[in-house]
């Protein structure tokens, strides 16, 4: 005597887990996309004061050209525009004959002081340049312009 066993489709715990995982991924992507769009819609301008240390005079001269666009070296993102820049001798701390630390000018290296206008987003952690790169006093960025590549160190941020 034959007995027929019905084996229909069975919905088990693994199916549930897979579906939940896929739905979570879709939700994460949607949230991220809409968050980024919102951030970019609310970008503000900030005045960033920065220094560039220990560069040659040739580099300093080439850098101090106003209205140059500033880009990040890592991803070529344009982050702002140079408003003004000047340079002076790089200061060094050296010992005098008595062993006391004194400040002296480096014989060849220069320090650039500059101000750039950058667009970004104010968050509770600080100013996010382009909505994505956190800038605080003391942070450094590898940047380039049409003429020069260097590292800037932020010394001031103002609205």
């Amino acid at each position: 005597m034959q007995t027929k066993q019905k084996t229909g489709p069975r919905f088990n715990i693994f199916d549930v887990l897979i579906i939940l995982a896929v739905i979570s991924c879709i939700a994460a992507i949607v949230v991220k996309v809409f968050f980024i769009e919102e951030v970019q819609a609310d970008l503000n301008n900030a005045e960033i004061t920065f220094i560039v240390e220990n560069v040659s005079e040739g580099t300093a001269e080439a850098f101090c050209v106003p209205d140059r666009q500033i880009y990040l070296q890592d991803d070529d993102t344009q982050i702002g525009t140079l408003q003004s820049a000047s340079y002076s001798a790089q200061k060094l701390l050296v010992e005098d004959a008595g062993g006391k630390l004194v400040e002296a000018d480096h014989p060849t290296k220069k320090q650039i002081q500059g101000v750039a206008s950058m667009s970004g987003y104010w968050s509770e952690d600080g100013f996010l340049i382009g909505g994505t790169h956190l800038a605080t006093v003391g942070s450094t960025f590898k940047i380039y312009t049409k003429d020069v590549a260097c590292t800037i160190k932020i010394v001031g941020i103002a609205e």
């Binding site: 060094l92 050296v94 010992e95 005098d96 004959a97 004194v102 400040e103 002296a104 000018d105 480096h106 014989p107 060849t108």
Partner: peptide, 17 residues
């Protein structure tokens, strides 16, 4: 290539490296 000293030299009131 140049070596930069760590002890300052004072000449005419100006401190140089």
């Amino acid at each position: 290539a140049q070596y930069y000293g760590t002890v300052a030299v004072e000449e005419d009131g100006v401190i140089t490296v």
